[in-house]
Design a protein around this nucleic acid. Structure first.
Lengths: 161, 161
DNA sequence: TTGCTAAGTGTTATGCTATAACATATCAAC
DNA sequence: GTTGATATGTTATAGCATAACACTTAGCAA
C-alpha cells in the first residue's frame, strides 16, 4: 500500500498525470471537462491539502470564473462524482484524488494542524466492513475512512519545517 | 464482532445499561451529569438513529430545557467527550454510543434512507490504518469509519416495514 | 435552417450546521 | 462568605450547502 501525500514525490508529474487522466476519462465517458471544472481540479491539485468549498470559490472568483456558492459546489459535485476528488467529511473540505483511475475505497490520514492529507487505499478495511455488512444484510454505497491526527512535520517534538 | 442497531434486541435494557453506565462513569471521573446532559443522552438513546443537533434542540426546547443552539452543542460536546455519544460525520448528526465503556474505535453502518445506525467495533480497521500511520510517521488522534448505504429494511426489493 | 433537448452556468435567496462572546448562575473548597 | 471553576442563558454571527429559476450553449434531428 502507498500513501501519497506526506512523502516527497514529483508533484508536477502528479498534477499532470491526474489532469491527463481526467481528460481521458471524460472523453471516454462523454463528460464535459469545462473550464470551471478543469480549473477547480487544478486548484485542488496544487497541494495535497484539503480545501473548503468557499476557499475554492474565492480563487475561482479572483479569476473571473464565478462568484456564487453554487459555482463551487457544482464543480465539486462533478469532480467527486467522476472520482477526480473526494470530500473529507471530518473537515468539510475537498481534495483531489491521488489514485485516479482506481475503483477505490479511499482512506485518509488528515493532519488537523496543517490540513495536509495523505490518501491510502482501504481494501482491507473495506473487506472488514464488507463482512459486517454482509452479516447484517446491509448494502454499502460509500465508505468514509479517515484518521485525524498529526502529520510527520507537525509532531510536537519536531515542529513544522 | 457485534453490530448493535439493526438486529432485534432488548432496547429497554440497552437504554438502562447505558444510562447507569454513564452515571457511574461520571461519578468515577467527577463529571457532572446534569439534567440537560442526561436528558440529551436519553433522547439520543431512544432509537438507534442519528439525530441532528437542531433536532435534539427542538426536543429540549419543547421540554423547557433550552432554546438556543449552544445548549444542544454543549450537551453533545459533553456526551461525545465522555464517550457516551458519537458524531456521524457523513450525516452531521449524533448518536448514543452502543458500546459504552469500551475504549473503542467505532465503525458505523449508516442507512441513508431511514438514518438507522449500527455501531460495530473497528479493531481490524484501526490496526490497518495504524500500520499506514506508522509507516508514514503519522500520529492518529481519532478515526472516522463509516459505511453509508441501505439497511436490511430499506433494501429496494423490500421496502421499509 | 430551424427547432428541440439536455446539460451547463448565472444569480438570488435561503436553510442548515456550528461557534464566538459575554452575562449570569450554581456549587464546592477554602 | 469569598473565591474559583464549571455550567447555563442569550445574542449574534460565521461557515457549509442547496433550492429554485432564468438564461445560455452544444448537439442532434427534422
Amino acid at each position: 500500500m502507498t500513501a501519497i501525500g506526506f512523502d516527497r514525490h514529483d508533484h508536477t508529474k502528479c498534477v499532470t498525470n491526474t489532469l491527463v487522466g481526467a481528460e481521458r476519462y471524460c472523453i471516454e465517458n462523454k463528460l464535459k471537462f469545462t473550464p470551471i471544472r478543469r480549473r477547480s481540479l487544478e486548484i485542488l491539485l496544487a497541494e495535497h491539502r484539503a480545501l473548503g468549498a468557499y476557499d475554492l470559490l474565492a480563487i475561482l472568483a479572483r479569476e473571473g470564473l464565478g462568484t456564487a456558492p453554487p459555482v463551487a459546489y457544482r464543480a465539486l459535485d462533478f469532480l467527486t462524482s467522476a472520482g477526480f476528488a473526494h470530500k473529507i467529511e471530518g473537515l468539510n473540505a475537498y481534495i483531489a484524488c491521488a489514485h485516479l483511475g482506481a475503483d477505490h475505497a479511499p482512506a485518509f490520514l488528515i493532519c488537523t494542524s496543517c490540513k495536509a492529507v495523505a490518501e491510502a487505499e482501504a481494501d482491507t478495511t473495506r473487506h472488514h466492513l464488507g463482512e459486517v455488512a454482509r452479516a447484517t444484510g446491509f448494502t454499502i454505497r460509500r465508505t468514509v475512512i479517515e484518521a485525524l491526527g498529526l502529520c510527520p512535520k507537525c509532531q510536537p517534538e519536531a515542529p513544522c519545517a
